[in-house]
Amino acid sequence: MKPTYKFKKPELLHGVDTHYCSGCGHGILHRLIAEIIEELNLKEKTIGVAPVGCAVIAYNYWDFDCSEASHGRALAVATGIKRVHPSLTVFTYQGDGDLASIGLAETMHAANRGENLTCVFVNNACYGMTGGQMAPTTLIGQKTATTPLGRDPREKEGWPLKVSEILAMLPGVCFVARSSISNPAHVKQTHDYIKRAFMNQTEEKGFSIVEVLSPCPTIWQKTPEEAMNWIDTEMTKEFPLGIIKNTEVHR
């Protein structure tokens, strides 16, 4: 007799081992996205765009159409795809360096055009792939490869950039939420937010973004458990969780 699964790996997630470090948040998020696309029955209608960063080869793990994008340009690439195929569901999967630093112009303008896109914004407060440099979202006092004494606004290293709050001000944006994956309840919440963001696109509501606070234990030099705790105790102080905007876009 076939076993009945209560919790089962989604079909859209290939069974291969990922290249991510132990305790990396990308694995959880990849699974969530695969689950959501399955639940919404969108496999044949989804195109993912993953730009430069640790997750650039996300297509090795997902079983639907995907494109790479150069650093920062995921939302421009997604705009091109979506305008050619308005009936398909197009989403980007971007890190903080990508979305909030080098790609800030593309982010702002795709959102401001009200592109009917879904953006999953993975915030781990650092550049993970390149060895842990300061990101726009790096916390004050956080030590990175390029802020060895800790990020210090007095040294003109700036403050953590709250892109989600900024995007929420734009009329083309219909849904902005921030969540984390620091514990099972938060993972479930993240699932619900991202699912909402996908459904908004199907319902042609406009630009949706979900910012997810995600651990990078390797760069943070913490155990996976400590990393999850650090999200709860430190990151959420600067980046509070919850829905920031949820509205119909007036066209």
């Binding site: 209560k6 990922t18 305790g23 694995g27």
Partner: peptide
Amino acid sequence: VGCGRCYLMCPDCCIEIIEE
């Protein structure tokens, strides 16, 4: 107890839960 917390938190999707 079949709560699925392990499944939710596993970054490598190596845990599944079967219900009898």
